[in-house]
Computed example of a mutant assay.
Amino acid sequence: MIKKIYTIESGCFNPYQNMGLEEYLMYQAGEDECILYLWQNERTVVIGRNQNAWKECRTKELEADGGYLARRLSGGGAVFHDLGNLNFTFLARRCNYDVDKQTDVVLEAVKRLGLSACKSGRNDITINGCKFSGNAYYSTGDCCYHHGTILMHADQEQMEKYLHVSRQKLESKGVESVRSRVINLCDLMPELTKERMAVVLKEAFAGRYGLPVEPFPGERLEGGEIRSRAAAFASWEWKYGRQIPFSDEISRRFSWGEVQLALKADGGRISELILHTDALDTQLVTALTEALPGTQLTKAAVAEAFRQIPAQNRLQASMKDDLERLLGLLL
């Protein structure tokens, strides 16, 4: 049961420092606490944990303009951050982690501005059918977080400049471009500021949880550990990941997300496997990429390897079936 709720705002616009603090806070949330963390990144493309950086982002253009590429811990698709966007993160232990309740905070905050929003699809919050907030989720052990964007006056020209969205994904959304499926809240409320948005989020947080909001205690912030986590997010290895000289590659779009699968074969067995996807579920992808190397390149052997990996829910069961069939096309 939650007995204390805290808020903390970052005054830094560097994505690696902000994500380092986010990860640190996840482990700091006590058994009876929930933390609301508010933060902004400057000219940043943030890709999901299992995405291919080069396919999701025009990295040369971004870097030439002084921007940042960042990879988050959670799954989902690539998003563009600038100072016209406010990010939120709810951090709590698993026993107190409630995505619906946390989403209600965002919906109530927007309502306090006189706007009516609703949850749409697997992870979007929309107004009039247009997305202003994309959400993603992460957990490890007993620690969880739910984070998302709030587009206020984001630069949509830069969003289209740096994001490379596949035609399949746009067609699945029934739109022609990235810009046509998003909306800035300032389009509906020109006087909205980041400060006002932060205030209504905190008010809605207090109202939904029925508790007073307190500042997160500064003495619980360990600078050295936060800097160490930030350095890991800034590393080339984390941002870009490894590339393999693959033998075969195949891609598909499913109801749960888009997939690019690449494998390297050696001696009739899978020696390396990479799965790039914008799926929100990251656990099954990790399990598959760890379990399949060493498997014989036969449908029977691959099917048996898939059977050994348990599905924790209906989504994972669907993902397993689809990925097994997809890999089977390469055999």
Rank of each mutant, 00 (worst) to 15 (best):
G67C: 01
G67V: 01
G67P: 00
G67E: 01
G67F: 04
L73S: 07
G76A: 10
A78W: 08
A78H: 09
H81L: 11
H81C: 09
D82R: 13
L83C: 13
N87F: 12
N87M: 12
F88G: 10
F88W: 12
F90D: 03
F90T: 07
A92D: 07
R94D: 06
R94A: 14
C95D: 12
N96T: 01
N96D: 12
Y97C: 06
D98G: 04
D98P: 02
K101R: 15
K101N: 06
K101H: 13
T103W: 00
V105R: 08
V106S: 07
L107P: 08
E108R: 15
A109W: 09
K111F: 03
K111G: 12
K111V: 00
G114I: 04
G114T: 06
L115F: 06
S116Y: 05
A117T: 03
C118M: 03
C118E: 13
S120N: 12
G121L: 05
G121N: 02
R122A: 07
T126R: 09
I127R: 02
N128D: 14
G129L: 07
G129P: 07
G129W: 07
C130W: 00
C130I: 01
K131D: 04
K131N: 05
G134E: 06
A136H: 01
A136M: 03
T140L: 10
G141K: 09
G141L: 09
D142A: 14
C143L: 09
C144P: 09
H147Y: 11
T149W: 10
I150P: 03
I150R: 01
A154C: 14
D155I: 01
Q156V: 10
Q156K: 14
E157F: 00
Q158R: 14
M159S: 04
Y162F: 15
Y162I: 11
H164Y: 12
V165Q: 04
R167M: 07
Q168W: 11
Q168N: 14
L170V: 11
L170H: 10
E171C: 11
S172M: 10
S172I: 05
K173T: 01
K173E: 11
K173D: 00
E176Q: 13
V178A: 12
R179H: 13
R179E: 12
